[in-house]
């Protein structure tokens, strides 16, 4: 166990270093740099900017300095947002994105698991067919189409939710639902398949035979065996939710990391982009790591190495 954690930490450092290096190279091969959009920059001003960002140093010195700053957790100041360091932008955006992501994940898990279990127990029934049809739709419809149709219906026609913005829980519910639904659909399908396989096993028959209530058999015995594919899907799902939040934050005008990232990329705010890619990598890696750990907790047959 301990060895497993140490090994993973080493790989984490390597991964982050690789991402840093690739971003650094991408950043440097662009001609002109971030200020090329401003035409006719006086040479003195340009000189000052270059000196301020140490753009005149040899490349390996720039690389070393930048790497050292990053290791200390200082992502430097933004190229484009005046008076902001990258750390400040991330600190502002992170709580918004995190609450959106966590809420979406909760929706995905509760809706997906419930629909999957019900479908498996009522195999071939009306509910099963309805849920699986919905799940297929959920997988095939792009999330921005889903979100805009949801805005049309629930905001403009029915007036159940506020249209956009950040601050109250009600403003977060609709984007989180739209973000979580495609993943709920996938989880429902995985749960259904897993449950169907497990329900025909001997140990389930034994559990029934020794007189347990069917609720207890399903929730305590069957679900535990069926949920493994869902757990291993959580890694890719996290990646998907991170990506999806870019779109949902745009549509619902949420001031999260996603909208900052897109703006930063479109305006070539390189330090901000690099800082955010590193944060996203860290998040994704941590999630994959937790998934692997929880594997061993759920299924005693799994050995970590």
């Amino acid at each position: 166990m301990f060895q497993f954690i140490v090994k993973r930490l080493v790989w984490l450092v390597l991964t982050l270093w690789a991402v840093f290096t690739v971003s650094f190279i991408l950043m440097k091969i662009v001609p002109g740099g971030p200020y090329q959009a401003e035409r006719n920059l006086p040479p003195e001003v340009e000189q000052n900017i270059r000196a301020q960002f140490h753009l005149d140093d040899p490349l390996h010195i720039q690389y070393r300095d930048h790497l050292w700053d990053t290791v200390r957790g200082d992502f430097r100041s933004s190229f484009k947002l005046k008076d902001f360091t990258v750390n400040e932008v991330i600190a502002q955006g992170f709580p918004v994105s995190a609450s959106l992501g966590v809420l979406a994940m909760l929706f995905a898990l509760t809706l997906g698991l419930t629909a999957g279990i019900v479908s498996a127990l009522r195999r071939g029934g009306v509910l099963d067919l309805a849920f699986m049809a919905l799940a297929t739709v959920g997988i095939a419809v792009p999330n921005f189409v889903l979100a805009s149709i949801a805005v049309l219906i629930f905001v403009f026609k029915l007036g159940w939710f506020p249209a956009a913005g950040w601050g109250t829980l009600a403003q977060l519910v609709l984007p989180a639902l739209c973000l979580g639904l495609p993943f709920a659909a996938y989880i429902a399908r995985l749960t259904r398949t897993g449950m169907l396989e497990v329900l025909s096993k001997d140990y389930i028959r034994l559990a029934y035979a020794k007189g347990l209530s069917s609720r207890r058999v399903v929730l305590r015995h069957a679900l535990r065996g069926a949920v493994l594919p869902v757990v291993s899907y959580l890694g890719p799902a996290t990646a998907g939710i991170l990506t999806g939040s870019l779109v949902l934050e745009r549509i619902f005008a949420l001031p999260g990391m996603g909208s900052h990232f897109i703006d930063a990329a479109l305006q070539r705010d390189y330090t901000l982009v690099m800082g955010m890619v590193l944060v996203y990598t860290l998040l994704l890696y941590t999630m994959n790591f937790l998934v692997d750990l929880s594997y061993a907790v759920i299924d005693p047959r799994v050995k970590l190495h």
């Binding site: 991964t15 990646a239 991170l242 870019l246 990232f261 990598t281």
Partner: peptide, 13 residues
């Protein structure tokens, strides 16, 4: 290693 890199962000970049 590549699996834990959020490629979509690199691609956008």
């Amino acid at each position: 290693v590549l699996y834990s890199i959020p490629f979509i962000f690199v691609v956008i970049f």
